[in-house]
Design a binder for these strands. Structure first.
Lengths: 340, 340
DNA sequence: ATGAAAGCGCTAACAG
DNA sequence: CTGTTAGCGCTTTCAT
């Protein structure tokens, strides 16, 4: 049995209250007794049981994290930022990934609540009328969304402007002379940001008077691109000359699949991704993409959350700036190139 | 104030014991009372407080995870496997990354112990005489190492054979005709597996009668390769023709830096990485590397740990198979190529 | 400065 | 089948 505060008290010949005071650095303990207690603690190799403390104080110094996947560096980087900030403020993290299963969100949050986390940072499939979020609200547990689209300021969120950035991608492609555009995305149902990016992308294109781009929806986990892509490029007259991918991981796979189809990027077709994962800059061709500040997003979200928890001022909505990185994977439209 | 078991009991006109029985699916409750209680629970929107239960049962259903970094997909994948297995067994995860700061290991484990996790999965800088590990042993907390070198079966570990795989890389390079070899690695002090890989690499080379390869140690977080690499290739007579990188992320950066130096991989120099991160297969050139089954490692480690916790049989040491992937980044030695 | 005791939310004998 | 009660380990008044 692990030693408890009682064992320490007995060994040091003091009351448990005094031991508690020593543990909690209370100033109101005589130097002599403090030393006595510290020696007993040392001797018994005593570590305070946080459960007892937490139950007593109703204050766990822990935060929950719920994200769709760790396999995407974008989320891993955010968790890294969360970890850094939480650690520096003395908070512990309880972590779950849902693997893009929306139903798991509720279960994850329920579990986190049972463990009495003081707040939760999450990315959900869809914040609108979301069960997990409703539960959080009902229980008055502070939370902040990351990555999710900022919807009507309904929820505290730290994110980027997905609509605007999707539009930026479209504009960039149009500027390069592309007209036959397409977007390929993970399940829209599993990602409100993908939907927002699509919206910005499509709106910008149609506003410019061009036809609505082709939208291709694929599975988040294992898209079978070798099956999906060829038909799209079967007819050279309708085949898109540029492809916007809803995330970098997908873009990288797409470039690979196009290669297997004999299509060269960017010579035959341009590809732009989204996320700005570090590795994109090392690829060949280097990946054109929208960089979101993932690490910072996690960091800022944690700051906001902790400020909220501690009753300090915080911003309900934080939109971090994104950067469109011009890589080699997006170039001028093939026909124009030929005319040069 | 969140409702407690007492509130539910009062509303349902039963004792707290009965409520507890309902919550815990005990069969010994009459159908009628069960329904009464469930309605009260529903009505009050009651969620059991795990702290109370945990304190009472001395059983938290939670596991700790301590890894060096989430920025490396290798660890993210392992955590993904851990998460999957833990979730399916009803365990919650408490997570910390140390960012390669060895001193943080002890602090992380101490904190996890305070929260009474039932077991811990970790990757440490050096398992030999490791403070965090000693603490775990002293407190009799089950744990299992992942990635770490299996050292004298001192610690339960799920890993690959780093020495053998390092040797495999050397052999492959020798087979390709390379003789002037070098290894570039993150701080050896922060990674026992890097040391093991080096050992296998060096031993195989010297055993084959070749000179000891050049060993270059760089920072794990931000190696300044543009500074470090050029001098090594200044003299074409001593410059290595093949480079073994201790991990894929490093290998990718190295290939980038070599490119900026005007050196082409694999034409001018071969590069082999280590880890087998998914993206390596999509690079150009595709990355030659040693694939470790990261997801599975996390999965198996969690299985082992839970089996241990639940008093079932488990294997103290599990060596998972690795695969050397032949990618385009490693080719035959330049001089040989010229002679063709 | 220190101790006694109540209580945090829940479980687990033990009765009945 | 259900209720009573004694903790689990710790904090926190309230006395002393």
């Amino acid at each position: 049995m692990a030693p408890t505060i009682k064992h320490v008290a007995k060994l040091a010949n003091v009351s448990v209250a005094t031991v508690s005071r020593v543990i909690n650095q209370s100033k109101k303990v005589k130097q002599a007794t403090r030393i006595k207690v510290e020696q007993a603690i040392e001797q018994l190799n005593f570590t305070p049981n946080a459960l007892g403390r937490n139950l007593s104080t109703a204050h766990t110094k822990s935060l929950g994290v719920v994200i769709p996947s760790l396999s995407n560096p974008v989320f891993a980087d955010a968790v890294s930022g969360i970890n850094q900030q939480a650690k520096s403020r003395g908070y512990t993290l309880m972590f779950t990934s849902t693997d893009y299963v929306a139903q798991d969100e509720l279960q994850a949050v329920t579990s986190l609540l049972a463990y009495q986390v003081e707040g939760i940072i999450l990315t959900v499939a869809n914040p609108i009328d979301n069960q997990a979020l409703n539960l959080l609200i009902k229980n008055k547990i502070p939370y902040v969304l990351i990555y999710n689209q900022a919807s009507d300021a309904q929820h505290p969120v730290v994110t980027i402007d997905n609509i605007n950035s999707g539009g930026g991608v479209a504009q960039k492609l149009l500027d390069l002379g592309h007209i036959k555009l397409a977007m390929i995305s993970g399940n829209f149902a599993a990602s409100d940001r993908a939907r927002a990016r699509k919206q910005g992308f499509v709106d910008t294109i149609t506003s410019a008077g061009h036809p609505t781009p082709l939208i291709i929806e694929v599975d988040f986990i294992e898209p079978d691109l070798d099956e999906i892509l060829p038909p799209i490029f079967a007819d050279p007259f309708t085949a898109p000359t540029a492809l916007f991918c809803s995330n970098d991981l997908l873009a990288i796979s797409v470039i690979g699949a196009l290669g297997r189809m004999g299509l060269n990027v960017p010579h035959d077709i341009s590809v732009i991704g989204f996320d700005g994962i570090a590795i994109g800059a090392h690829l060949h061709p280097t990946l054109s993409t929208v960089i979101q500040p993932s690490h910072k997003m996690g960091l800022v979200a944690t700051q906001q959350l902790l400020d909220n928890i501690n009753g300090q001022d915080y911003h309900k909505t934080v939109i971090l700036p994104h950067i469109i990185r011009t890589g080699e994977s997006a170039g001028i439209v093939p026909s124009v190139q030929i005319n040069l």
